[in-house]
Design a binder for these strands. Structure first.
Length: 567
RNA sequence: GGGCGUAUGGCUUAGUCAGGAUAUAGCACUGGCCUCCUAAGCCAGCGGUCGAGGGUUCAAAUCCCUCUACGCCCGCCA
């Protein structure tokens, strides 16, 4: 249940009755100190040809004896609602204590596939595209919390030139036994990939050799495709290990070659040829994009080569048709470099008479102060290295505080390190560009995961010290007397709204933002309001602490960050 | 040349789609708080012509137009 909805429903009901309308109007939150909800009467002024001030004063009288509100006040055309604190507290504590780890969850229906990461299997994941798995996984978690059946999916490109180069290098260059020692598969392979690339660029003979392999792949040579896939899977082992370490689980891996091998790409090709916007140039087929508003260089989308073989985007279309058969909503998390390609997929689907479109969440790259990351140039920060650094830094912080005798150092440092990375990445809107700086990535204060985890640990600590049996928590709203308690109740009440918006509008950054606010509010409460040493308020304050702990834990769960009992 | 995106205090950032009351936080900086449930914390202070210029409106960070800077893309690559 959503506690705020109780109040909003009441406001909406009364106002609709008063102004005799069925139309929806927004119920907002006023600036600090002006109440809990507000309705802007300007919007009604035109319709009734009366001043907003008059309207608001009229409406004010309608709420004069409403038990849900302490005070309803017309002010300069706004109608401000001050909720009844006791009522709010009763509803919030009642709801959270009943729903516990389900507080904030929903009961939405539908199958959603979130495709994310889908990085080329030619080396380790790096921070440049590191937002992809984190945003994707977080969105999947939020949507699951809302009740959807969610599958996460990684589309593995096992047909590209990059992998062909790697596979060639693997077969022909071999691996130095010494170098391999103790290294993850993806890190071993990326060295081969780099060497292969160098040869591909500089040695004519080798380039021709690899290009011949690529042609064979495109023509559907099963033996070679199987080999490519084997190499891709080798690399995927390393990538998956990195993801799992970050609490990111992928449900399905779909290999691009499958759509060539099962013939579905060629069905797509045949159907696209029938489009009235299809054309042919030297045997290569394309869709003319001019009717769709494209000008200049990119006004043709080629979906076959001159020799009739398919292209990456064509196979992506086949993949989407397949995906649509398995879900109601398909969400793809993609780098901003895929915008044009995604548009071409969308147009092609339309040309195929498919009504559906994938929903796309684009993110901008994480770059380094010295520029864009590049695997080939070796100018990268690998996600594995970032994780290692973060965990090491977390450990350092634990030792600095002398907590090593009280906590499981390894467990806590992993939870804090991984959490810090995830939180820092997901808290920023995906379309904003990020410049990677170690000191920011490893910041454990303020708006960060450790801040939230710390608040959770403090709440846990109170319950532990008080020997609280969480199955028998009771409360009495009359015992809430401090402004710190009121503030906490109010923030707790907002959680279901936040989760709903984060999921439905695909704005995952709302969750960390909210958790920071909740943790901060709790910390202030913690500082000024004694719990275990309180008198008759003790039970109710314990309930409030527990409700906060549940909410923090629920939010952290959605971020894939561990809620620690101690740190 | 064309397309898409971004621009808010020294740095990072919310609010922009659905215009409205004092523009949200964090970092940094200054000052204060551990005889009391974990100081990865709390309190106070400092700091903003919301990229520039026009327009619409009773009201613009938010809508419209023009421009600038930065990022990404524009291959019968992936």
């Amino acid at each position: 249940m959503n506690p705020l909805q109780v109040f909003r429903d009441e406001i909406a009901k009364e106002i609709r009755a008063a102004i005799k309308t069925d139309t929806e109007f927004p119920i907002d939150e006023p600036p600090e100190g002006l109440g809990d909800f507000c309705v802007k009467c300007f919007q009604f002024a035109k319709q009734f040809r009366r001043s907003p001030v008059e309207i608001s004063m009229d409406l004010e009288t309608r709420f004069s004896n409403n038990p849900l509100f302490e005070k309803v006040e017309a002010k300069g055309g706004y109608l401000n609602f001050y909720v009844n604190r006791r009522e709010m507290a009763r509803i919030v504590l009642g709801t959270v204590l009943e729903e516990r780890e389900k507080y904030g969850n929903g009961s939405k229906k539908g199958r959603i596939i979130v495709e994310h990461t889908s990085a080329n299997p030619t080396g380790p994941l790096h921070v440049g595209r590191g937002r992809n798995p984190i945003i994707g996984d977080t969105l999947a978690r939020v949507l699951r919390a809302l009740g959807y059946e969610v599958q996460t999916e990684y589309y593995v490109d096992d047909m590209g030139r990059q992998l062909a180069i790697l596979a060639w290098a693997y077969k022909n260059l071999g691996i130095d036994g010494e170098e391999k020692k103790g290294k993850k598969e993806d890190h071993v392979l990326v060295e081969l990939y780099r060497k292969g690339n160098e040869l591909f660029e500089n040695e004519e003979k080798i380039r021709r050799e690899i290009e011949a392999i690529i042609r064979q792949i495109e023509q559907g040579n099963r033996e070679i495709i199987a080999y490519q896939r084997k190499i891709a899977e080798k690399c995927m082992k390393g990538i998956v290990a990195t993801l799992e370490r970050c609490n990111i689980h992928i449900d399905n891996f779909v290999y691009e070659s499958e759509f060539l091998l099962d013939g579905s790409v060629y069905e797509v090709v045949e159907r696209l040829k029938q489009s009235r916007h299809a054309g042919c140039e030297d045997g290569a087929y394309y869709i003319d994009l001019a009717p769709f508003g494209f000008h200049g260089k990119d006004s043709k989308f080629f979906f076959t080569r001159g020799d009739g073989t398919s292209l990456y985007t064509t196979r992506d279309i086949a993949y989407h048709l397949n995906k649509f058969s398995r879900c109601d909503v398909a969400i793809n998390v993609l780098g901003e470099d895929h915008k044009l390609q995604a548009k071409m997929v969308a147009i092609s689907l339309q040309e195929l008479g498919v009504e559906r479109k994938p929903e796309i969440l684009f993110y901008s790259f994480v770059s380094l102060p010295e520029g864009k990351m590049s695997t080939r140039a070796g100018r990268v920060v690998y996600l594995d290295d970032l994780v290692e650094e973060a965990v090491a830094k977390a450990k350092e912080e634990i030792l600095k505080r002398g907590r090593e005798s009280k906590v499981d150092v390894d467990k806590v440092s992993v939870a804090v390190g991984i959490g810090a990375i995830r939180f820092n990445i997901v808290k920023i809107q995906p379309e904003k560009q990020i410049v990677f700086r170690w000191e920011e990535a490893l910041n454990f204060e303020g708006n960060s995961a450790p801040f939230v985890q710390y608040a959770h640990a403090r709440a846990a600590s109170i319950l532990r010290n008080g020997n609280v049996d969480i199955r028998k928590i009771t409360y009495n709203a009359e015992h809430l007397r401090t402004p710190e308690e009121d503030a906490l109740i109010k923030v707790l009440a907002k959680f279901p709204d936040v989760v709903d918006t984060a999921g439905e509008e695909r704005k995952v950054y709302l969750i960390p933002q909210y958790l920071h606010k909740l943790a901060e509010t709790f910390n202030t409460f913690y500082r000024y309001v004694p719990v275990l040493n309180a008198g008759e308020e003790r039970e109710t304050r314990i309930a409030l602490v527990y409700a906060t702990k549940c909410t923090l834990a629920n939010g952290l769960q959605m971020l894939g960050i561990e809620a620690l009992e101690e740190m």
